[in-house]
Design a protein around this nucleic acid. Structure first.
Lengths: 364, 364
DNA sequence: GCGAACTGAGAAAACGCTTTCTCACTCCGG
DNA sequence: CCGGAGTGAGAAAGCGTTTTCTCAGTTCGC
């Protein structure tokens, strides 16, 4: 006959009664405190097993002041990038006995701060992906979130590691790659307007333009998903560009699908590049040239930083910058002799070859 | 000067002191108990705002006996299907003020039971996706997990809703579709051996075979990811089949990519079908014929069932069965006049047309 | 104007655990 | 044989809330 406490679950008290000892002793045994007489310890363990006793984590958390749980705030769980970060984080944290609580803001940036605060209070630390949050708001809330790691954002507050991907360098490398292939008219299919990582990409593009005055770069509005890319086909064709830098792989895939429907050959007529190197990028037709971000590694790294903070270790480098690696596949090729055959674009006679450009190693 | 309790965070006691009232009154105000004098309530609220007081959820959980958190156990967070379930679940739960704790078992089925138990104890309820767990083990642990919803598994225990996708019916419909197109040699690229949903697919296939004795169906070993499909190219070609039923969309994509590399035309030479209708299925080349599972809806439904259990409502139907919808796209086409041009397969003279088959509506 | 019904807020008891404090008991040396 | 050190386990005090219990102070009816 199993006694049951008020909540209906078996508690430490039940075990104590069964083993004929006090609560305290049961706790000591369960936590491997060796000041307990082996005989008594055995009796307690037997009672615990018989009653299938499992300590209540909430009580434990309250007493210990820790939850063994970390939180992650993401803007959109549908995005493969955040899925990968979550996965890397979850796996790494699990190895140290931590669980992950997710908070999806569903792209509603006004929710992010509240969500982050709530999540943080339930957890021992937080990983924050909030690309749309304003710098001001980020600065304001960051300190209150303290064991905190930022993804693709930075703050002036001390003790807050940032893991940021160098999107600028990545886009620059992709543009460079297209320029080497002879493309002189490029278009950038931008991401969401307020996005921090889109800003970084624009900076990279600016740097590229500075070094390649002969290359024309058109800016096109966009977004971050398939549909954005698919809907951008008209704008892309109208631009007359032969090399398209899509905001990310999803957009690139949507675009390639749309171009395919129009009978435009990739990379024969138009070259397309993505960004992120999501797993699917290897399996598109043609396979997608992109900039690879070591994204799962990023999740793991986020955990390492967070763990150091939680354990009050002297965390080595308070943040890291990730250099994307150019992943040249089949969606990018030489510029066509006479560009885009579709819309009535003022077809300026393609300069047969651009100024020679130093050739970088395929992957840096 | 803000007082700080032992943990360094502001607690209810600080607010009580500042407002010159007792803990109890602060609690009453924070919880909207209207038996408090409006003046005092205002004073408390002012103090709370000034101190930026936020109730500690752990203490709250202990007192209330609930965590406002649910858990989900998934075998592999890299799988788009589980990602989608997670997303649907998370979104639906968030709307009711619940958070989601994830537990990824990383395909280690021996971990699933422990993981599930741990997750359950921290949460008010659990959604369990454990395709590899043995029936015996499932039966054993299910009751102890009680507010529990199963995905793609069933149990005899009462009060445990199951949401199961009728994979059998889906595969049967896909096979039927290929048969209608004139394919008489099919191959099934199976999923992981112990997987419950693979079992359901095999049942569907058996039903199909019973109704179509003239169609030959080869079984090929497989798995559940891209690489599986990619590596299966040789086996697929060797089988001589012209219609391939891949375990899921991922496998189908890997296979199509491999076939493309070999110069095999899809669907000209070989038709390929997937399963799940992940978002990417619309954007492959050719677009993928598949069986659509309303997967995000499934996540939402899981929350509804769980919520009913948590609230002790009379949950209507204790479980649901989802019928996949045939999604015919470009990867399936008429059987070629003379099958697979590659390997030296005993090419039996293709029967020009199979027995006439009643044509079902494109989507049921 | 006095007792009964009410109102509103503080004291204290949960919730389930960990950990410090305390003390009975054993063992040893002098 | 007695006192001090050492050992091991129970009592009790947290951890931060909510909620019941209790009671002082008001208000109302007769």
């Amino acid at each position: 006959m199993v006694r049951r406490s008020a909540t209906g679950r078996i508690g430490i008290a039940d075990v104590a009664v069964k083993a004929g000892v006090s609560h305290a002793t049961v706790s000591r045994v369960m936590n491997g405190n060796y000041t307990v007489d082996p005989d008594i310890a055995a009796r307690v363990r037997a009672a615990a097993v018989e009653l299938k006793y499992q300590p209540n984590p909430v009580g434990r958390s309250l007493a210990l002041g820790k939850t063994d749980t970390i939180g992650i705030v993401v803007p959109d769980l549908a995005n493969p990038t955040f899925q990968a970060i979550l996965r890397g984080l979850s796996r790494a944290a699990a190895q140290d006995g931590y669980r992950v609580l997710i908070a999806d803001s569903f792209e509603v940036s006004s929710e992010e701060a509240i969500l982050a605060g709530e999540a943080r209070r339930r957890c021992d630390g937080l990983v924050l992906c909030a690309p749309r949050m304003s710098d001001a708001e980020l600065e304001e809330i960051a300190p209150s979130l303290h064991p905190l790691v930022l993804i693709n954002r930075t703050t002036t507050a001390a003790d807050i590691p940032s893991l940021v991907v160098d999107y600028g360098q990545g886009v620059e490398a992709l543009a460079e790659h297209l320029a080497e292939l002879g493309h002189t008219r490029l278009a950038f299919l931008a991401g969401p307007a307020g996005s921090a990582s889109n800003g970084l990409r624009l900076e990279g593009l600016a740097a590229f333009k500075a070094g390649h005055p002969q290359v024309e770069v058109t800016m096109l509005d966009g977004g971050s998903d398939f549909d954005t890319g698919h809907e951008a086909v008209d704008a892309v064709l109208a631009s007359g560009a032969t090399g398209i830098l899509a905001f990310n792989d999803l957009v690139a895939m949507g675009l390639m699908s749309g171009l395919h429907e129009r009978g435009v050959d990739v990379p024969g007529d138009i070259s397309v590049t993505g960004f992120d190197d999501i797993p699917f990028a290897r399996y598109t037709t043609p396979t997608l040239t992109t900039a690879a971000v070591p994204i799962a590694e990023l999740g793991a790294k986020a955990w390492q930083q967070l763990r150091a903070l939680i354990r009050h270790e002297d965390h080595e480098a308070p943040g890291s910058r990730y250099q994307p690696r150019l992943e040249i596949r089949a969606s990018s090729g030489p510029a066509p002799a006479n560009p885009v055959p579709s819309n009535p674009v003022p077809s300026n006679p393609a300069p047969s070859n651009p100024a020679p450009i130093p050739v970088p190693a395929p992957s840096r």
